[in-house]
């Protein structure tokens, strides 16, 4: 398949993730949407790594995966801490910092 087809799939993945992030209010679901966006971006990196026949893109995807793992660990532990304090994990109900 040509590079364009992969570009379309990656963009769709990113757009679905972005709209999910805006549409859903549960922190866990927003978190999943972030993972979708990260996967879309990583797919683009691999696509162009293949397109240019170079490995740099794949190396970057390794770093993206490592950062996603870091984000997952910190994000979920913050989520659990919030749940312990507030007993809810909806983003629009956590408005204590709003003036």
């Amino acid at each position: 398949m040509g590079t364009e087809a992969y570009l379309i799939v990656a963009s769709l993945l990113f757009l679905i993730g972005a709209s999910g992030f805006l549409l859903r209010r549960n922190l866990l679901v927003m978190f999943m949407s972030i993972e979708l966006m990260l996967n879309g971006a990583a797919l683009l990196f691999v696509t162009f790594a293949r397109h240019w026949n170079r490995m740099d893109g794949q190396i970057f995807v390794f770093f993206i995966i490592a950062l996603a793992a870091a984000e997952a660990a910190v994000g979920l532990s913050i989520l659990i801490a919030i749940f312990r304090l507030k007993h809810r994990v909806n983003a629009d109900e956590l408005s204590e910092l709003k003036g």
């Binding site: 993972e35 996603a68 989520l79 659990i80």
Partner: peptide, 17 residues
């Protein structure tokens, strides 16, 4: 990493919260 790590972590998050 994603399926064995992050997705399982997410399921733990769901169960815990």
């Amino acid at each position: 990493v994603y399926i064995g790590g992050i997705n399982v972590l997410l399921l733990f998050g769901i169960m815990l919260t």
